[in-house]
Nucleic acid binder design. Structure first.
Lengths: 168, 168
DNA sequence: TATTGTTATACTCTATAACTATA
DNA sequence: TATAGTTATAGAGTATAACAATA
């Protein structure tokens, strides 16, 4: 307080968050939290997200973008609203996302000839290339998850899907 | 553009996000995304989070706060760093969270007699009361999740825990 | 009337880096 | 040297509401 603080330079944002240590053994007691599915869902999703961001060499492209590009790739000429439903986000959240992908030359937008309100999205060749590259990392990442999940992968995914479906 | 837009009033933030519709059947093709654990983890976590926020009558208290309060309740005199590890967040993320809980009279902070750098956190009676109340909703929420998950709940949680542990 | 997409607006969460005080 | 906690700073993610164009 007595000494004037030197001006803080803007922190460098790496976008690559380092892994955070989990709770140290015996350090804390979670109590009933231990029985809550929601709590563990959050921790697992968070860890998975971080691990993916770390492993892919593209810290600027987050899993959310990757998922959107995958959907566009698998459903060419999809509209923004349909995309927003597929990734469970509001359409107003999709707009800036698509704008970024457009700016980076990864997707194209063409007006639909059928419905002049809506736009048809497609990946550009650059977009296809990037998705292909990210897919390598995504597969490796999911391979890691597979090992952790074990033999019951299909059942595990079924349950996750059921959760997402029924809670919507 | 031609017509000047009337001044937009600041949007009302409810904090209670409405449920978003999932992908409509047959509308999109997710392709390989369907096999990725990470993708379904995200959708399930997101849906669970929203459902919890909707059901509890306290839109101002998010699951993150609830988890933190539970940890403090179960581990009285825990330090902020230990808490940050328990909830897998950086200590700098804990500071504003604790400040909010302090301001609202839900926790107390006392300097540790052993280590004068660290603070001991506890719930106030008001904090205990709030946690107790939220716990009712959390239990109901998790009961819903239980039904969806089915008989294999224990195994399901074990897998989630393993994911969080090994990906850290 | 309803829907697609955009814009204005703004909140929440979270992190990094530097800093102070202790250890 | 290392750790506990704070602060300055800032980016990512996402939402609500109103709007224009179209259905």
């Amino acid at each position: 307080m007595a000494t004037p603080r030197t001006k803080t330079p803007p922190p460098v944002r790496t976008g690559l968050r380092r892994p955070l240590p989990g709770p140290a053994e015996g350090e804390v007691r979670l109590g009933e939290l231990n029985d809550f599915i929601g709590f563990h869902l959050r921790l697992a999703q968070d860890a998975s997200f971080r691990a993916f961001a770390r492993q892919t060499g593209h810290p600027e492209l987050k899993p959310g973008r990757f998922a959107a590009m995958m959907v566009i790739r698998n459903t060419p000429d999809i509209s923004q609203v349909a995309l927003s439903r597929a990734i469970a986000r509001d359409k107003s959240s999709v707009t800036p996302m698509i704008q970024e992908l457009l700016r980076r030359g990864l997707v194209t937008r063409r007006p639909s000839p059928i419905d002049r309100r809506s736009m048809m999205l497609r990946l550009t060749p650059a977009g296809e290339a990037l998705v292909g590259e990210l897919l390598v990392h995504a597969r490796r990442h999911d391979g890691t998850l597979d090992e952790i999940v074990g033999a019951r992968k299909a059942e595990f995914i079924t349950i996750l899907r059921r959760l997402a479906d029924r809670l919507g």
